[in-house]
């Protein structure tokens, strides 16, 4: 009985957990498919994790063989899988594009529009420092003096924003300007609601971030 009562309470919040779950799924999908790191959605993730903990406490009160417990556990495993995969994808991108991400993030923090959570930013900085000291101790220290300088900026790996992605429009968007490869003139296209396209990531990067399109 506890189980149902508590869940009903959470529905009184302004946004239902159901909506949060859906947006977590969209965030996961976009993060998996976008070439660059996207703004974090920590608020939703925290909310979901809180919900999971809460549910788990309630499930433990139920007998192990209870059918409801099995169903709830299964659902929680599914959500946990999604959140883990989402966070891992972000960490993977942070490691790969560490240097440009840190530089861009410093500017973004000044304007208050940070993409990384504080924990992720700390991780990025530590990762970059560790990589630097590792390269120094493993290679550079053994080279003649003149070659010992290390320019981290030359090690930077940049995401390919020109890569092509598949997307589905969530609303109608007008005036998406595509950069033409050979021709000199740019082409402008319109994304109808619900239509699907393959195009370069760069012109639609903003639309992914503000949720007007979903990468598929």
């Amino acid at each position: 009985m506890d189980l149902t009562d508590d869940i009903e309470l959470s529905e009184d919040e302004e946004i239902s957990v159901e909506t949060v779950l859906k947006s977590v799924q969209c965030a996961w999908q976009n993060e998996r498919l976008a070439p660059e790191i996207l703004p974090h959605r920590n608020d939703m993730i925290e909310c979901m994790l809180g919900q999971i903990q809460h549910m788990e406490r309630n499930i433990n009160k139920l007998p192990k063989t209870d059918l409801r417990a099995c169903i709830h556990k299964m659902e929680l495993s599914r959500i946990k899988f999604m959140i883990c995969n989402y966070l891992k994808t972000r960490l993977h991108k942070i490691e790969k594009y560490c240097i440009p991400i840190i530089i861009a993030e410093r500017q973004r923090i000044e304007s208050g529009a940070n993409y990384l959570t504080p924990a992720e930013f700390k991780y990025a900085q530590e990762y970059s420092l560790n990589m630097e000291s590792h390269l120094k101790s493993a290679v550079l220290a053994k080279l003649p003096g003149t070659m010992e300088t290390l320019e981290m900026s030359k090690l930077a790996v940049y995401p390919n924003l020109q890569s092509h992605v598949f997307l589905k429009a969530n609303t109608a968007v007008k005036g998406v300007v595509l950069e033409e490869g050979l021709g000199d003139q740019d082409v402008e296209i319109e994304l109808e609601n619900g239509s699907q396209h393959i195009l370069q990531y760069k012109p639609i990067a903003e639309l992914v971030k503000n949720g007007k399109v979903l990468l598929v």
């Binding site: 890569s163 092509h164 992605v165 598949f166 595509l178 033409e180 490869g181 050979l182 082409v187 296209i189 239509s195 699907q196 396209h197 393959i198 195009l199 370069q200 598929v216």
Partner: peptide
């Protein structure tokens, strides 16, 4: 030599089957 295509009514599984070949 196109760099843009419209793929209405293709389902996710179908789109996924041409990844990573087509985008790459």
């Amino acid at each position: 030599g196109g760099n843009y295509g419209r793929l209405d009514h293709l389902t996710m599984m179908e789109i996924n089957s041409v990844k990573p070949l087509l985008p790459e």
